[in-house]
């Protein structure tokens, strides 16, 4: 079982969100993250990484939705890579 932070999840690698450090982000941002369906237990896949040399923000598939978030927030999301 391989665990990795979302900002380091390889593109196209299916994974499950295992833990989110809600304290690492402002309350409002955590709230919006939940609204967008990103929470413990959901299937996730990194689709695109950033612009030019920054590799920030990243686009991820959550369920049947695509959402964009910054690496800083992604770093507090722990994923387990599916086999």
């Amino acid at each position: 079982m391989d665990f990795v932070q979302l900002d380091h999840l390889p593109l196209g690698q299916p994974a499950i969100v295992r833990a989110i450090d809600w304290t690492a982000m402002p309350e409002r941002e955590g709230h919006r993250l939940r609204s967008l369906g990103l929470e413990e237990g959901v299937a996730i896949e990194a689709l695109h990484k950033g612009i030019l040399f920054w590799k920030d923000p990243i686009a991820v598939r959550v369920g049947r939705m695509t959402i964009a978030l910054r690496r800083k927030v992604a770093a507090s999301i722990l994923c387990e890579m599916a086999a």
């Binding site: 982000m25 402002p26 919006r32 993250l33 967008l36 923000p57 695509t66 959402i67 964009a68 978030l69």
Partner: peptide, 17 residues
């Protein structure tokens, strides 16, 4: 403005595509 007026501690970006 962000530095001295609103004194923001950094912006955020979280959006559905």
């Amino acid at each position: 403005i962000q530095r001295f007026v609103t004194q923001s501690r950094g912006s955020s970006f979280l959006i559905e595509m």
